[in-house]
Design a protein around this nucleic acid. Structure first.
Length: 498
DNA sequence: ATTGTCTGCCCC
DNA sequence: ATTCTGC
DNA sequence: GCAGAATGGGCAGACAAT
Protein backbone atom coordinates (compact mmCIF):
# COMPACT_ATOMS: atom_id res chain seq x y z
CA UNK A 1 0.00 0.00 0.00
CA UNK A 2 1.29 3.45 -0.86
CA UNK A 3 1.49 6.23 1.69
CA UNK A 4 -0.85 8.24 -0.53
CA UNK A 5 -3.53 5.58 -0.35
CA UNK A 6 -3.10 5.40 3.40
CA UNK A 7 -3.37 9.13 3.95
CA UNK A 8 -6.36 9.40 1.63
CA UNK A 9 -8.09 7.06 4.07
CA UNK A 10 -7.01 9.32 6.91
CA UNK A 11 -8.46 12.30 5.10
CA UNK A 12 -11.78 10.59 4.62
CA UNK A 13 -11.78 9.39 8.25
CA UNK A 14 -11.17 12.88 9.54
CA UNK A 15 -14.24 14.03 7.63
CA UNK A 16 -16.42 11.30 9.10
CA UNK A 17 -18.31 12.03 12.30
CA UNK A 18 -20.21 8.80 12.81
CA UNK A 19 -18.19 6.12 14.51
CA UNK A 20 -20.07 3.43 12.66
CA UNK A 21 -19.04 4.97 9.36
CA UNK A 22 -15.44 5.21 10.58
CA UNK A 23 -15.55 1.54 11.44
CA UNK A 24 -16.55 0.65 7.89
CA UNK A 25 -13.85 2.85 6.37
CA UNK A 26 -11.24 1.42 8.74
CA UNK A 27 -12.35 -2.12 7.92
CA UNK A 28 -11.73 -1.43 4.25
CA UNK A 29 -8.31 0.05 4.99
CA UNK A 30 -7.36 -2.95 7.13
CA UNK A 31 -8.59 -5.37 4.52
CA UNK A 32 -6.48 -3.65 1.83
CA UNK A 33 -3.37 -3.86 4.01
CA UNK A 34 -1.16 -6.90 3.63
CA UNK A 35 -0.34 -8.86 6.75
CA UNK A 36 3.17 -7.34 6.63
CA UNK A 37 1.66 -3.87 6.67
CA UNK A 38 -1.33 -4.20 8.92
CA UNK A 39 0.54 -3.91 12.24
CA UNK A 40 2.29 -0.73 11.08
CA UNK A 41 -0.99 0.63 9.72
CA UNK A 42 -2.57 0.08 13.15
CA UNK A 43 0.22 1.82 15.04
CA UNK A 44 0.23 4.77 12.65
CA UNK A 45 -3.57 5.09 12.87
CA UNK A 46 -3.14 5.48 16.60
CA UNK A 47 -0.36 8.03 16.15
CA UNK A 48 2.43 5.67 17.23
CA UNK A 49 5.12 3.41 15.84
CA UNK A 50 5.01 0.57 18.36
CA UNK A 51 2.87 -0.53 21.30
CA UNK A 52 3.28 1.51 24.46
CA UNK A 53 5.35 -0.95 26.38
CA UNK A 54 8.13 -0.87 23.79
CA UNK A 55 9.05 2.57 25.08
CA UNK A 56 9.87 4.03 21.64
CA UNK A 57 9.09 7.76 21.52
CA UNK A 58 9.79 10.41 18.90
CA UNK A 59 11.18 12.90 21.44
CA UNK A 60 9.81 15.49 19.05
CA UNK A 61 6.78 17.69 19.51
CA UNK A 62 5.54 21.15 18.54
CA UNK A 63 8.82 23.05 18.89
CA UNK A 64 10.86 20.51 16.95
CA UNK A 65 8.22 20.10 14.28
CA UNK A 66 8.10 23.85 13.67
CA UNK A 67 11.82 23.68 12.89
CA UNK A 68 11.21 20.68 10.63
CA UNK A 69 8.57 22.53 8.66
CA UNK A 70 10.66 25.67 8.39
CA UNK A 71 13.58 23.63 7.08
CA UNK A 72 11.53 21.56 4.64
CA UNK A 73 9.64 24.43 3.04
CA UNK A 74 12.28 27.14 3.05
CA UNK A 75 10.48 29.15 5.68
CA UNK A 76 11.63 30.23 9.13
CA UNK A 77 10.65 29.45 12.71
CA UNK A 78 8.93 32.80 13.28
CA UNK A 79 6.75 32.51 10.22
CA UNK A 80 5.78 28.90 10.92
CA UNK A 81 5.08 29.75 14.56
CA UNK A 82 2.87 32.63 13.50
CA UNK A 83 0.79 30.49 11.16
CA UNK A 84 0.62 27.73 13.78
CA UNK A 85 -0.79 30.16 16.32
CA UNK A 86 -3.46 31.17 13.82
CA UNK A 87 -4.36 27.66 12.73
CA UNK A 88 -3.70 25.63 15.86
CA UNK A 89 -2.63 22.60 13.84
CA UNK A 90 0.75 21.88 12.25
CA UNK A 91 -0.89 19.67 9.63
CA UNK A 92 -2.86 22.65 8.38
CA UNK A 93 0.32 24.75 8.44
CA UNK A 94 2.00 22.22 6.15
CA UNK A 95 -0.98 22.16 3.83
CA UNK A 96 -0.79 25.94 3.57
CA UNK A 97 2.98 26.22 3.15
CA UNK A 98 3.56 23.41 0.72
CA UNK A 99 2.18 24.97 -2.48
CA UNK A 100 4.36 28.05 -2.09
CA UNK A 101 7.48 26.28 -1.01
CA UNK A 102 10.43 27.92 -2.68
CA UNK A 103 11.86 24.69 -3.96
CA UNK A 104 10.47 23.70 -7.36
CA UNK A 105 7.27 21.73 -7.24
CA UNK A 106 8.90 19.04 -9.34
CA UNK A 107 11.21 18.37 -6.41
CA UNK A 108 8.56 18.44 -3.73
CA UNK A 109 6.86 15.08 -3.75
CA UNK A 110 8.96 14.13 -6.76
CA UNK A 111 8.88 10.40 -6.35
CA UNK A 112 5.19 10.49 -5.56
CA UNK A 113 4.52 12.20 -8.86
CA UNK A 114 6.92 10.29 -11.05
CA UNK A 115 5.66 6.77 -10.93
CA UNK A 116 7.72 5.66 -7.98
CA UNK A 117 5.15 5.80 -5.20
CA UNK A 118 6.35 5.57 -1.64
CA UNK A 119 5.15 2.52 0.21
CA UNK A 120 3.72 2.91 3.69
CA UNK A 121 6.33 0.48 5.01
CA UNK A 122 9.11 2.68 3.60
CA UNK A 123 7.71 5.74 5.34
CA UNK A 124 7.23 3.73 8.52
CA UNK A 125 10.88 2.64 8.46
CA UNK A 126 12.00 6.25 8.03
CA UNK A 127 9.82 7.38 10.92
CA UNK A 128 11.21 4.60 13.09
CA UNK A 129 14.76 5.54 12.20
CA UNK A 130 14.06 9.14 13.22
CA UNK A 131 12.47 8.06 16.48
CA UNK A 132 15.42 5.82 17.31
CA UNK A 133 18.01 8.59 16.87
CA UNK A 134 19.70 9.23 20.20
CA UNK A 135 22.79 10.73 21.76
CA UNK A 136 24.79 13.79 20.88
CA UNK A 137 23.44 15.61 17.83
CA UNK A 138 20.29 13.53 17.76
CA UNK A 139 17.98 16.54 17.90
CA UNK A 140 19.57 17.90 14.74
CA UNK A 141 19.44 14.51 13.02
CA UNK A 142 15.79 14.07 13.90
CA UNK A 143 14.87 17.50 12.55
CA UNK A 144 16.89 17.10 9.37
CA UNK A 145 15.67 13.55 8.80
CA UNK A 146 12.05 14.50 9.21
CA UNK A 147 12.37 17.48 6.90
CA UNK A 148 13.88 15.22 4.22
CA UNK A 149 10.97 12.83 4.67
CA UNK A 150 8.47 15.68 4.34
CA UNK A 151 10.06 16.81 1.11
CA UNK A 152 9.59 13.37 -0.40
CA UNK A 153 5.90 13.25 0.46
CA UNK A 154 2.82 14.38 -1.40
CA UNK A 155 0.97 17.26 0.31
CA UNK A 156 -1.73 15.15 1.94
CA UNK A 157 0.75 12.65 3.35
CA UNK A 158 2.94 15.48 4.66
CA UNK A 159 -0.06 16.94 6.45
CA UNK A 160 -0.74 13.72 8.32
CA UNK A 161 2.83 12.60 8.97
CA UNK A 162 3.56 15.93 10.67
CA UNK A 163 0.68 15.36 13.04
CA UNK A 164 1.97 12.02 14.29
CA UNK A 165 4.95 13.07 16.47
CA UNK A 166 3.05 16.00 17.97
CA UNK A 167 0.22 13.64 18.92
CA UNK A 168 -2.36 15.59 16.95
CA UNK A 169 -3.83 13.07 14.52
CA UNK A 170 -7.27 13.67 16.05
CA UNK A 171 -9.06 11.27 13.77
CA UNK A 172 -11.91 10.81 16.23
CA UNK A 173 -11.35 7.16 17.00
CA UNK A 174 -8.94 5.09 19.02
CA UNK A 175 -8.04 1.52 19.86
CA UNK A 176 -11.59 0.28 20.61
CA UNK A 177 -12.88 1.47 17.24
CA UNK A 178 -9.95 -0.27 15.59
CA UNK A 179 -10.98 -3.54 17.22
CA UNK A 180 -14.51 -3.02 15.91
CA UNK A 181 -13.03 -2.46 12.46
CA UNK A 182 -11.12 -5.75 12.59
CA UNK A 183 -14.34 -7.53 13.36
CA UNK A 184 -16.09 -5.65 10.57
CA UNK A 185 -13.35 -6.60 8.12
CA UNK A 186 -13.89 -10.31 8.81
CA UNK A 187 -17.61 -10.49 9.49
CA UNK A 188 -19.27 -7.30 8.25
CA UNK A 189 -20.47 -6.67 11.81
CA UNK A 190 -19.12 -6.21 15.34
CA UNK A 191 -19.68 -9.77 16.47
CA UNK A 192 -15.99 -10.51 17.07
CA UNK A 193 -15.37 -7.37 19.09
CA UNK A 194 -15.59 -9.22 22.42
CA UNK A 195 -13.09 -11.83 21.30
CA UNK A 196 -10.73 -9.19 19.96
CA UNK A 197 -11.10 -7.01 23.03
CA UNK A 198 -10.31 -9.93 25.24
CA UNK A 199 -7.12 -10.59 23.33
CA UNK A 200 -6.20 -6.90 23.46
CA UNK A 201 -6.83 -6.62 27.19
CA UNK A 202 -4.39 -9.33 28.05
CA UNK A 203 -1.89 -8.49 25.35
CA UNK A 204 -2.08 -4.77 24.68
CA UNK A 205 -0.36 -4.83 21.30
CA UNK A 206 -2.97 -3.98 18.70
CA UNK A 207 -0.60 -4.48 15.78
CA UNK A 208 0.20 -7.99 16.90
CA UNK A 209 -3.50 -8.75 17.26
CA UNK A 210 -4.37 -7.31 13.84
CA UNK A 211 -1.62 -9.33 12.22
CA UNK A 212 -2.54 -12.58 13.95
CA UNK A 213 -6.19 -11.96 13.14
CA UNK A 214 -5.45 -11.26 9.53
CA UNK A 215 -3.31 -14.35 9.12
CA UNK A 216 -5.40 -16.85 11.00
CA UNK A 217 -8.70 -15.08 11.67
CA UNK A 218 -10.22 -15.96 15.04
CA UNK A 219 -7.76 -18.78 15.59
CA UNK A 220 -4.88 -16.33 15.58
CA UNK A 221 -6.01 -14.56 18.70
CA UNK A 222 -8.28 -16.90 20.56
CA UNK A 223 -5.39 -18.60 22.30
CA UNK A 224 -4.11 -15.35 23.79
CA UNK A 225 -4.58 -15.33 27.53
CA UNK A 226 -3.12 -13.58 30.54
CA UNK A 227 0.62 -14.22 30.31
CA UNK A 228 3.16 -13.21 32.94
CA UNK A 229 5.52 -10.80 31.22
CA UNK A 230 2.86 -9.18 29.04
CA UNK A 231 0.96 -6.37 30.76
CA UNK A 232 -2.79 -6.52 31.29
CA UNK A 233 -4.69 -3.29 30.72
CA UNK A 234 -5.64 -2.16 34.22
CA UNK A 235 -9.24 -1.90 35.34
CA UNK A 236 -10.23 1.69 36.14
CA UNK A 237 -12.79 3.13 38.54
CA UNK A 238 -15.83 5.32 37.93
CA UNK A 239 -16.87 8.19 40.16
CA UNK A 240 -20.17 8.71 41.95
CA UNK A 241 -21.28 11.69 44.03
CA UNK A 242 -23.01 10.11 46.98
CA UNK A 243 -22.79 7.03 49.17
CA UNK A 244 -26.46 6.29 48.39
CA UNK A 245 -25.75 6.01 44.67
CA UNK A 246 -22.86 3.66 45.37
CA UNK A 247 -24.87 1.25 47.48
CA UNK A 248 -27.71 1.43 44.99
CA UNK A 249 -25.41 0.63 42.11
CA UNK A 250 -23.04 -1.90 43.71
CA UNK A 251 -25.10 -3.41 46.50
CA UNK A 252 -23.23 -4.78 49.48
CA UNK A 253 -19.63 -4.13 48.55
CA UNK A 254 -16.07 -3.88 49.73
CA UNK A 255 -14.22 -0.71 50.71
CA UNK A 256 -10.44 -0.25 50.58
CA UNK A 257 -8.30 2.80 51.40
CA UNK A 258 -7.54 4.86 48.33
CA UNK A 259 -3.79 5.45 48.23
CA UNK A 260 -2.26 8.35 46.33
CA UNK A 261 0.71 6.58 44.75
CA UNK A 262 1.53 4.65 41.56
CA UNK A 263 -0.64 1.96 40.09
CA UNK A 264 1.62 -1.07 39.88
CA UNK A 265 1.08 -4.39 38.11
CA UNK A 266 3.50 -7.04 39.35
CA UNK A 267 4.39 -10.03 37.18
CA UNK A 268 6.19 -12.98 38.71
CA UNK A 269 7.63 -15.23 36.03
CA UNK A 270 9.06 -18.61 36.81
CA UNK A 271 12.16 -19.40 34.79
CA UNK A 272 10.56 -22.72 33.90
CA UNK A 273 7.95 -20.76 32.01
CA UNK A 274 9.83 -20.48 28.74
CA UNK A 275 8.51 -18.14 26.13
CA UNK A 276 6.90 -20.23 23.45
CA UNK A 277 5.92 -17.73 20.80
CA UNK A 278 8.72 -16.03 18.95
CA UNK A 279 6.31 -13.26 18.03
CA UNK A 280 6.59 -11.71 21.45
CA UNK A 281 9.89 -10.05 20.83
CA UNK A 282 9.10 -7.38 23.39
CA UNK A 283 8.77 -10.06 25.97
CA UNK A 284 12.15 -11.47 25.09
CA UNK A 285 13.57 -7.99 25.38
CA UNK A 286 11.99 -7.57 28.78
CA UNK A 287 13.40 -10.89 29.89
CA UNK A 288 16.86 -9.67 28.95
CA UNK A 289 16.29 -6.45 30.84
CA UNK A 290 15.59 -8.41 34.02
CA UNK A 291 17.96 -7.52 36.82
CA UNK A 292 19.86 -10.77 36.89
CA UNK A 293 19.23 -14.38 36.15
CA UNK A 294 17.56 -16.12 39.03
CA UNK A 295 14.94 -18.78 39.48
CA UNK A 296 12.34 -16.03 39.56
CA UNK A 297 11.84 -13.03 37.35
CA UNK A 298 9.78 -10.06 38.49
CA UNK A 299 8.54 -7.46 36.00
CA UNK A 300 6.54 -4.36 36.88
CA UNK A 301 4.21 -2.33 34.66
CA UNK A 302 2.67 1.10 35.16
CA UNK A 303 -0.93 2.13 34.62
CA UNK A 304 -0.03 3.09 31.05
CA UNK A 305 1.73 -0.27 30.54
CA UNK A 306 5.27 1.06 30.64
CA UNK A 307 7.81 -1.40 31.97
CA UNK A 308 8.86 0.35 35.17
CA UNK A 309 10.67 -2.53 36.87
CA UNK A 310 13.76 -0.36 37.43
CA UNK A 311 11.79 1.96 39.71
CA UNK A 312 10.95 -0.68 42.29
CA UNK A 313 14.04 -2.64 43.41
CA UNK A 314 12.77 -3.29 46.96
CA UNK A 315 9.39 -4.56 45.75
CA UNK A 316 11.04 -6.78 43.15
CA UNK A 317 13.31 -8.15 45.87
CA UNK A 318 10.39 -9.08 48.10
CA UNK A 319 8.39 -10.78 45.38
CA UNK A 320 11.41 -12.89 44.48
CA UNK A 321 10.99 -14.53 47.88
CA UNK A 322 7.42 -15.59 47.18
CA UNK A 323 7.00 -19.33 46.87
CA UNK A 324 5.04 -19.40 43.63
CA UNK A 325 5.54 -20.42 40.02
CA UNK A 326 4.04 -17.40 38.28
CA UNK A 327 1.55 -14.70 39.19
CA UNK A 328 0.15 -11.33 38.16
CA UNK A 329 -0.92 -8.92 40.91
CA UNK A 330 -2.57 -5.51 40.81
CA UNK A 331 -1.98 -2.88 43.45
CA UNK A 332 -0.68 0.54 44.45
CA UNK A 333 2.83 1.55 45.53
CA UNK A 334 3.26 4.53 47.83
CA UNK A 335 6.22 6.17 49.51
CA UNK A 336 6.54 6.22 53.29
CA UNK A 337 8.67 8.00 55.84
CA UNK A 338 11.32 5.48 56.96
CA UNK A 339 11.26 6.92 60.51
CA UNK A 340 7.55 7.21 61.18
CA UNK A 341 6.39 4.67 58.56
CA UNK A 342 3.65 7.15 57.56
CA UNK A 343 2.52 7.48 53.96
CA UNK A 344 3.93 10.36 51.97
CA UNK A 345 1.99 12.74 49.71
CA UNK A 346 2.11 12.08 45.97
CA UNK A 347 4.66 14.86 45.39
CA UNK A 348 7.19 12.86 47.41
CA UNK A 349 6.29 9.49 45.96
CA UNK A 350 6.62 10.77 42.41
CA UNK A 351 10.32 11.39 42.98
CA UNK A 352 10.69 7.64 42.66
CA UNK A 353 9.74 8.01 39.02
CA UNK A 354 13.27 8.13 37.71
CA UNK A 355 15.79 6.11 35.77
CA UNK A 356 19.05 7.01 37.49
CA UNK A 357 20.04 7.03 41.15
CA UNK A 358 17.21 4.78 42.25
CA UNK A 359 19.10 3.25 45.18
CA UNK A 360 19.82 6.72 46.61
CA UNK A 361 16.22 7.86 46.45
CA UNK A 362 15.03 4.46 47.69
CA UNK A 363 16.89 5.12 50.97
CA UNK A 364 15.18 8.46 51.38
CA UNK A 365 11.75 7.47 50.06
CA UNK A 366 11.14 3.73 50.47
CA UNK A 367 8.02 2.32 48.83
CA UNK A 368 5.34 0.01 50.12
CA UNK A 369 3.22 -2.09 47.78
CA UNK A 370 -0.39 -2.73 48.67
CA UNK A 371 -1.68 -5.66 46.61
CA UNK A 372 -5.42 -5.53 46.04
CA UNK A 373 -6.03 -8.03 43.25
CA UNK A 374 -4.75 -11.29 41.80
CA UNK A 375 -5.16 -11.66 38.03
CA UNK A 376 -3.30 -14.87 37.35
CA UNK A 377 -1.60 -17.63 39.31
CA UNK A 378 0.58 -20.48 38.05
CA UNK A 379 -0.69 -20.13 34.52
CA UNK A 380 -4.36 -19.89 35.42
CA UNK A 381 -6.15 -16.63 34.53
CA UNK A 382 -8.48 -15.17 37.18
CA UNK A 383 -9.87 -12.36 35.05
CA UNK A 384 -13.26 -14.07 34.85
CA UNK A 385 -13.30 -15.01 38.55
CA UNK A 386 -15.48 -12.84 40.87
CA UNK A 387 -13.60 -10.28 42.95
CA UNK A 388 -14.30 -11.88 46.35
CA UNK A 389 -12.80 -15.15 45.12
CA UNK A 390 -9.80 -13.45 43.55
CA UNK A 391 -9.26 -11.68 46.82
CA UNK A 392 -9.43 -14.98 48.73
CA UNK A 393 -6.74 -16.44 46.45
CA UNK A 394 -4.64 -13.33 47.00
CA UNK A 395 -4.87 -13.72 50.77
CA UNK A 396 -3.88 -17.38 50.46
CA UNK A 397 -0.87 -16.38 48.40
CA UNK A 398 0.30 -14.03 51.15
CA UNK A 399 -0.23 -16.66 53.83
CA UNK A 400 1.82 -19.23 51.96
CA UNK A 401 4.64 -20.87 53.80
CA UNK A 402 8.17 -20.17 52.80
CA UNK A 403 10.03 -16.92 53.32
CA UNK A 404 7.73 -14.30 54.77
CA UNK A 405 7.38 -11.07 52.85
CA UNK A 406 8.41 -7.95 54.74
CA UNK A 407 5.10 -6.14 55.41
CA UNK A 408 6.95 -2.83 55.35
CA UNK A 409 7.54 -3.35 51.63
CA UNK A 410 4.82 -5.68 50.40
CA UNK A 411 1.46 -6.14 52.02
CA UNK A 412 -2.17 -6.80 51.21
CA UNK A 413 -4.80 -4.04 51.07
CA UNK A 414 -7.24 -4.06 53.98
CA UNK A 415 -10.92 -4.52 53.25
CA UNK A 416 -14.17 -3.68 55.00
CA UNK A 417 -17.56 -4.96 53.88
CA UNK A 418 -20.20 -2.23 53.63
CA UNK A 419 -23.89 -2.61 52.93
CA UNK A 420 -25.38 0.79 53.83
CA UNK A 421 -24.67 4.36 52.79
CA UNK A 422 -24.08 5.20 56.46
CA UNK A 423 -21.38 2.56 56.81
CA UNK A 424 -19.80 3.77 53.59
CA UNK A 425 -19.70 7.39 54.78
CA UNK A 426 -18.25 6.29 58.09
CA UNK A 427 -15.50 4.47 56.25
CA UNK A 428 -14.88 7.47 54.04
CA UNK A 429 -14.67 9.84 57.03
CA UNK A 430 -12.24 7.46 58.69
CA UNK A 431 -10.08 7.38 55.55
CA UNK A 432 -9.87 11.17 55.46
CA UNK A 433 -9.08 11.25 59.17
CA UNK A 434 -6.22 8.84 58.58
CA UNK A 435 -4.88 10.91 55.71
CA UNK A 436 -5.93 8.75 52.77
CA UNK A 437 -7.25 10.06 49.50
CA UNK A 438 -10.63 8.48 50.17
CA UNK A 439 -11.89 4.97 49.55
CA UNK A 440 -12.33 2.57 46.67
CA UNK A 441 -15.67 0.78 46.64
CA UNK A 442 -15.70 -2.50 44.78
CA UNK A 443 -18.45 -4.87 43.71
CA UNK A 444 -17.81 -8.28 45.23
CA UNK A 445 -19.23 -10.35 42.35
CA UNK A 446 -17.53 -8.41 39.56
CA UNK A 447 -15.01 -9.97 37.17
CA UNK A 448 -11.83 -8.01 36.39
CA UNK A 449 -12.79 -6.00 33.31
CA UNK A 450 -9.33 -5.27 31.98
CA UNK A 451 -8.98 -1.90 30.33
CA UNK A 452 -12.49 -0.73 31.18
CA UNK A 453 -13.68 2.03 33.45
CA UNK A 454 -16.98 0.93 34.89
CA UNK A 455 -19.00 0.66 38.07
CA UNK A 456 -17.32 -2.54 39.22
CA UNK A 457 -15.05 -0.11 41.06
CA UNK A 458 -16.07 3.33 42.27
CA UNK A 459 -13.86 5.92 43.88
CA UNK A 460 -15.10 7.98 46.81
CA UNK A 461 -12.77 10.96 47.01
CA UNK A 462 -12.90 14.10 49.08
CA UNK A 463 -13.52 17.22 47.07
CA UNK A 464 -10.34 18.46 45.48
CA UNK A 465 -9.17 22.02 44.94
CA UNK A 466 -11.53 22.46 42.04
CA UNK A 467 -14.49 21.99 44.31
CA UNK A 468 -13.39 24.32 47.08
CA UNK A 469 -15.93 26.85 45.93
CA UNK A 470 -18.52 27.01 43.22
CA UNK A 471 -17.52 30.46 42.10
CA UNK A 472 -14.33 32.47 42.22
CA UNK A 473 -13.74 36.12 41.38
CA UNK A 474 -11.00 36.35 38.78
CA UNK A 475 -9.29 38.91 36.63
CA UNK A 476 -8.52 37.90 33.07
CA UNK A 477 -4.83 38.48 32.45
CA UNK A 478 -4.55 36.92 29.02
CA UNK A 479 -5.38 33.85 27.01
CA UNK A 480 -3.82 30.90 25.26
CA UNK A 481 -4.46 30.06 21.60
CA UNK A 482 -6.47 26.86 21.42
CA UNK A 483 -5.48 23.80 19.48
CA UNK A 484 -7.58 21.41 17.46
CA UNK A 485 -11.26 22.11 17.82
CA UNK A 486 -10.56 25.16 19.92
CA UNK A 487 -8.39 26.87 17.31
CA UNK A 488 -11.36 28.20 15.35
CA UNK A 489 -12.62 30.07 18.39
CA UNK A 490 -9.18 31.61 18.83
CA UNK A 491 -9.05 31.04 22.58
CA UNK A 492 -8.12 27.73 24.18
CA UNK A 493 -7.91 28.81 27.80
CA UNK A 494 -7.84 31.99 29.87
CA UNK A 495 -5.06 33.04 32.17
CA UNK A 496 -6.65 34.60 35.24
CA UNK A 497 -5.60 36.26 38.46
CA UNK A 498 -7.54 35.40 41.62
C1' DA B 1 30.12 21.48 35.15
C1' DT B 2 26.13 24.14 35.07
C1' DT B 3 22.05 26.02 33.14
C1' DG B 4 18.30 26.14 29.69
C1' DT B 5 14.81 24.07 26.62
C1' DC B 6 11.87 20.66 25.24
C1' DT B 7 9.56 16.44 26.09
C1' DG B 8 6.61 12.68 28.15
C1' DC B 9 0.36 7.76 24.61
C1' DC B 10 4.70 10.91 32.05
C1' DC B 11 2.42 10.46 36.81
C1' DC B 12 -1.76 11.88 39.11
C1' DA C 1 -5.79 13.19 36.44
C1' DT C 2 -10.63 16.12 35.19
C1' DT C 3 -14.15 17.95 32.13
C1' DC C 4 -16.73 18.29 28.09
C1' DT C 5 -19.04 16.56 23.75
C1' DG C 6 -21.15 13.69 20.10
C1' DC C 7 -23.40 9.71 19.42
C1' DG D 1 -22.97 5.53 29.20
C1' DC D 2 -19.13 5.07 26.09
C1' DA D 3 -15.27 6.75 23.51
C1' DG D 4 -12.54 10.35 22.47
C1' DA D 5 -10.50 15.22 22.66
C1' DA D 6 -8.68 18.84 25.28
C1' DT D 7 -7.23 20.57 29.31
C1' DG D 8 -3.67 21.15 34.31
C1' DG D 9 0.50 20.76 37.85
C1' DG D 10 4.71 18.94 38.63
C1' DC D 11 8.68 16.03 38.04
C1' DA D 12 12.77 13.89 35.83
C1' DG D 13 15.15 12.64 31.40
C1' DA D 14 17.67 13.93 27.25
C1' DC D 15 20.17 17.10 24.78
C1' DA D 16 21.87 21.82 23.63
C1' DA D 17 24.11 25.85 24.94
C1' DT D 18 27.15 28.20 27.82
Amino acid sequence: MTIQTFTSYLESLSKTASRNEMTVVLAKLLSKSSSDEVDKVCYLLLGRLTPKFEGIEFQMATKSMIKVIALAYGSNVDEVTKIFKQKGDLGVVVAQLQPKADRPLADVGKRAHQGEPLQITTVYDKLLKIALEEGSGSVERKIFGFSELLKSLDPLSAKYMVRIPVGALRLGFSDMTLLDALSWMAMGDKSLRKLLENAYNVSADIGLIAKAFKEKAGKGIVHLKATPGIPIRPQQAERLGTAEEMIEKLGTSVAEWKLDGFRVQVHIISSKLKIKSSKFKTQRKQMQLGEKRSDKEVQIFSRSLENTTHMFPEIVGEFRKLDVGSAILDGEAIGYDPKTSKHLPFQETIQRKRKHGISDIAQKIPLRYYAFDLLSLNGESFLEVPFNERRKKLAELFEKKGKKLDPKTVTIAEQVIVSTPEALRKQFDESVKQGFEGIMVKKREAVYTAGARNFNWVKFKHMGVGKLADTLDCLVMGYYAGQGKRSGFGIGAFLVKV
